[in-house]
Amino acid sequence: MLADFNFRIIFEYMPLFLNGLKSTFLISIISIILALMTGIVACSCRISGIKIIKYPAIAYIEIMRSTPLLVQIYFLYFGLPTLGLRIPEIQTGILALMLNSGAYIAEIIRAGISSVDEGQIEAGVASGLNYVQRMRFIILPQALGVTVPPLLGQAIVLVKDSALLSLISVAELTRSGQTMTSERLMPAEAFFTVAFFYICIYLCLKTFSDWSQKKLIYREAY
């Protein structure tokens, strides 16, 4: 069944795929940076102990985590125009990815912070460091190491999630597969090529993530 796999057509469509790949790259990088910032803000609010910012942060995180990304995408795609906001699909998509991953990242950072031993905080308190100084010099540097592997894991998830933007006709990698399928009726060639590119991105990120994890264990064990 793979005998009549048509490589020629894949090469013919290569510019389309590479364009899609480029979009997927750009969308992912922009989204992950925005999500990181969102996550840091949401996490800070959540652990702040100030009720008027803590509870909205909790609500945001829990809503994002308990509804499907696709529904969030449609919510923005069909919802923003009814509010009079007409923005390009790609920006809607990035907004959805940012909000969705931001919530997961907030939880990753929170877990990192709470993994720092209570005694470390006490030692900081005992030597007279204030809250900001304890965060900056003691807690965050230690939490950072723990959060790197799960953050890379979230980056992997985000790259794959960006495939859903094809459903609101953003011209990214998966969309290029759909385009080729509809033009040439060759879904096998189209989607195996798409899958191949995703796996390449995945393997790069995975290698990086495994390496960071090993690095981390090494540092702890010394």
Partner: peptide
């Protein structure tokens, strides 16, 4: 794990 679920669905449903 390396491919988006939506791509997997397309592969199964169309191929």
């Amino acid at each position: 794990r390396g491919t988006p679920f939506v791509v997997q669905i397309f592969i199964i449903f169309f191929i």
